[in-house]
Amino acid sequence: MSWTRNEMAARAAQELEDGFYVNLGIGIPTLVANHIPDGMSVTLQSENGMLGMGPFPIAGEEDADLINAGKQTITTLPKSSFFDSATSFAMIRGGHIDLSILGAMEVAENGDIANWMIPGKMVKGMGGAMDLVAGVKRCIALFDHTNKRGESKFIKACTLPLTGQNCIDMVITDLGVFERDKAHNQFRLQELAPKVTLDEVKAKTEADVIFE
């Protein structure tokens, strides 16, 4: 049984550490916020200019001037701060953010990631993704292991235009967890989702990954 979106987010939350400043991407990564362990202090950064992102507001208490990077209404916490976009990206590009968890269209065995454009289709833009993968200390890519046609998204070399080179430290998919072994410059299978077999994950992984 592969992991659901929510279970993938819960698994990614196990990578959080007390005191971390974290940026969560749009989509499944946003769900990680629901799984921060009790008693752990994690500060969420929103790249449009906020540290200490609070939960969604109760209906009627929304404020059009207070949104996250997904343009959703949010709230503050006692520890929150606001700042301009240059300061926000100084946090990201200056290496002050501990962890970025982001979605991906493709991740390659060398740590490259593509998640912003498909040639020939409408290009929406990279937003802050290129800054995040280039600047944040540790980057986790969280995505479905295969596409709708069943083809691997964890591959030998990205075919889509890159978001960043050699920047992904961990891959978490619906099938398992892969840690990048810096010494061998290779991803290594760390954990399988419940009832997912080694044969299944091998068959669905195009990237050259260490499985034992």
């Binding site: 939960p55 969604f56 929304e62």
Partner: peptide, 12 residues
């Protein structure tokens, strides 16, 4: 007018 793009709320 201050339009909201993604009104997102939680249960009270």
């Amino acid at each position: 007018e201050k339009r909201i793009e993604q009104l997102t709320v939680r249960e009270a």
